[in-house]
């Protein structure tokens, strides 16, 4: 599972998506599953052009170093910059949106 559960949506081939997200999990723990489910829901609802990568640290522990992962689950917003980290099972949608800087964006729309 080199690229576990990578999803691209509404992005033409070759083009860089506006949202690049990475979710770090450690095995299929309830917390991780909840986080993934919550994240998918948020992505569908609030993001149009996004790419999501799920990394299982149990399988690729060396990847934890790169994004300075400490807590599990951690959602890392790679793009747009700056990098943001959102930890927890993403059950607090409000906070996730704030973390993704979507709260402001939505207000503007």
């Amino acid at each position: 599972m080199k690229q576990p559960a990578t999803k691209s949506k509404a992005t033409p081939v070759g083009a860089v998506p506006v949202w690049q997200l990475r979710l770090y999990v450690a095995g299929h723990t309830p917390k991780s599953m909840t986080a993934l489910a919550n994240l998918r829901k948020i992505c569908e609802e609030h993001l149009k052009d996004y790419e999501l990568e799920v990394i299982d640290l149990l399988k690729q522990p060396q990847l934890a170093k790169g994004d300075q992962i400490l807590a599990i689950p951690t959602l890392v917003r790679q793009l747009p910059t700056p990098i943001k980290k959102i930890i927890g099972d993403l059950s607090n949608t409000e906070r996730v949106l704030v973390g993704l800087n979507l709260r402001e964006a939505r207000k503007k729309e």
Binding site: I69, A71, I72, I86, I87, N92
Partner: peptide
């Protein structure tokens, strides 16, 4: 840089340390 959105654990630290 960190936003906390619900329950989490420090498995990341454990994994890094273990690795």
């Amino acid at each position: 840089e960190i936003e906390e959105t619900g329950s989490y654990d420090l498995d990341g630290l454990f994994i890094r340390l273990g690795h």
